[in-house]
Structure formats: C-alpha cells, structure tokens
Design a protein around this nucleic acid. Structure first.
Lengths: 151, 151
DNA sequence: TTAAAAGGTGTATTTTGAATACATCTTTAT
DNA sequence: ATAAAGATGTATTCAAAATACACCTTTTAA
C-alpha cells in the first residue's frame, strides 16, 4: 500500500509555494534545489498543478508560480483523491477486469470501501493551510530564513 | 493507491477455506478452479498463510488446508496489515531513504498517518466470520451448492 | 531586438516490483 | 510403490512508476 511519489512531490510543491506571499513567486529551480528533486520532475508536477487550477504560473523572466487560491481552500483529501486517480484496491473494484465469481455476494469490497472512506474523511479535515501553519519553522528547514535568497 | 493482488488472493483463499467445516479441507486445486487463479499462485498464497499460522495444511492424499483458528478470530485489519507489510505512503515514512529537508517540521506525515489509522480502524472491526456470514450465497456463487463435489 | 530566464510539452529510457511460470522436492494415505 | 497433495526456490514476464532528454513558447530586461 502506497501513494505515488508524484503525489508526495505535488504536496511538497504546494507547501513550498504556499510559503510565498503577495507578489512573490516560487520558481521551479528553487523548488528543485530545496527538495533535491530534479527540475524535470518538478516541471511535470507544476505543470500538472497548473492544469488542475491549483497554482498559476507566469512565464518569462521574473516568472514563477503561486497558489491560484487561498491555502485554506486547498483541501488535502480532495487533492490526494485527484492525484491518485484510481483506487483499485481489489480486483472487483474494476468492473471490466474483475472475474471473481463471488463478487456479487462478497462483503469484502464494502468493508474496504468503508475503510477507504474513513481514510479520506480524515484527509478532508485538513487544508494546505494546516500544512504551512508553522511557516517560520518550515522556512528555516528550507534555508529560506535569511530573507535574502535573491540569486 | 492500491493493495497487492496477493492480498486480494489471500483473503479469497481464506473465504473459501472458511466455508469448509469439521474435517473438510480445501484443496489448492479447488481454490484455483473456483477463482480461476493459477495453482502456482494459490500455492504461494497458501504457503504464506500457513507460515503466518492462519491455516494449517495436511500433505498427501486426502490432504488440504483448513483454518488454523475460528473465523471470528481472524481479524481483517490485522490480516491486511500483515499482508501489505510496508506502508511507505510518503518518502519520509522510510527513514534511511528519506531526504526531504522539511520532514522534521512537516505536518503531512501526521495527517497521512492519522488517515491510515482510520483506514485500519474500520478494517479491525471485522473478522473473517463477517466475510462468510452469507455462506449459502457464497457457496452457490462458487458452484458448491450441490453438495457433491467429490472429484 | 535579441538573449536570457522562465515555464510547457512530448517522448524515451530506466528501474522496480508485482505477477506469473517453471521445475523439482517432500510427505503421506492407500 | 505410487499417486495425490502440499513445499520451495528460482526464473521470467510485464506494467507502471520514476526519471531523463530534447526542444518549444512566452516574457522581459538590457
């Protein structure tokens, strides 16, 4: 059982971006440096987040990305749901592939579904804001605490 | 997000086995036939369940497997936990691999862990007995309803 | 007006782990 | 003895994720 690294990266990109305020923008290069993830991956993730309407980007010199909406409107549960798309926890979750004869009378899928629901219910109680509430600590960890990162 | 097929298979093997009573035993061949899973895989799964002490097997003619303890003592949550072993939902779940700089101050892992806890809490409310409560229906679906499957 | 900085996009390759298959051994009832 | 049943280790296949590469477009400051 796992989530995709992609999901992990996306969340981290949002955390980083959420620490920028006003006209400040996060650059792919910065994000790539802070997390030690290749620019290529960050690019992909960012592009995807733009398509989903979670961040907005500006091209060209002085460009970068910033959140497309307030951090407290970005729900973690919904985010993870979107990023992970398919939840085929059991063969029978995917009609069309399923050929388990007992699935019509099998309670397992209901139980697993209920558990999955509980999983997301918890995630849905949080927003990006909860992930960046300790802004100063995070900035320190990222080496953004000096305030002069003009490169 | 997904579970291993292996986990799915294991649960199904247990369901089938749980439908046998008294001195009746389930044979790998039977299980393989009912679910249309190759004997090779069933073999692996069964072997694993034996090692985990969930079923006991008898070799030789007239052999087969049966539950090693009452169905209501086989907890679904514990089972899934065991079968899925590693839950590295985020990079930072695996110290040793993790190199995310913000992990010491990152709330995400706590949230995900809480959600995972909720997932298992639901599963832990059920035992194998709950999965075979509709014994007759399951037997019918499996083509075991005639009562004479002596092959 | 052009060069550099920034993101956009498609495709290719690598890696990993699950899924599957094969071969051969051991045990035991008849 | 032998056939039925499980035990076990290894090898192969396959798919998906992870990663890398190449090149395009937009913007703006010099």
């Amino acid at each position: 059982m796992n989530l995709k690294k992609y999901t992990d990266y996306s969340l981290r990109v949002l955390i980083f971006t959420g620490l920028k305020h006003g006209e400040e923008r996060a650059r792919i290069k910065e994000i790539s440096d802070v997390y030690n993830i290749s620019q290529e991956h960050v690019r992909k993730v960012v592009h995807d987040l733009v398509k989903r309407g979670l961040v907005e980007s500006t091209r060209g010199r002085g460009g970068g990305i910033r959140l497309a909406k307030p951090a407290n409107e970005i729900n973690i549960g919904m985010l993870v749901r979107e990023l992970e798309q398919d939840f085929v926890l059991l063969e029978c979750f995917d009609q069309g592939v399923n050929h388990c004869v007992i699935s019509p009378g099998c309670s397992l899928k209901h139980i697993i579904n209920k558990a999955l629901g509980a999983f997301f219910k918890v995630l849905e109680e949080y927003t990006l804001e909860d992930l960046i509430h300790n802004e100063e600590e995070l900035k320190t960890l990222m080496g953004m605490d000096t305030g002069d990162r003009k490169q």
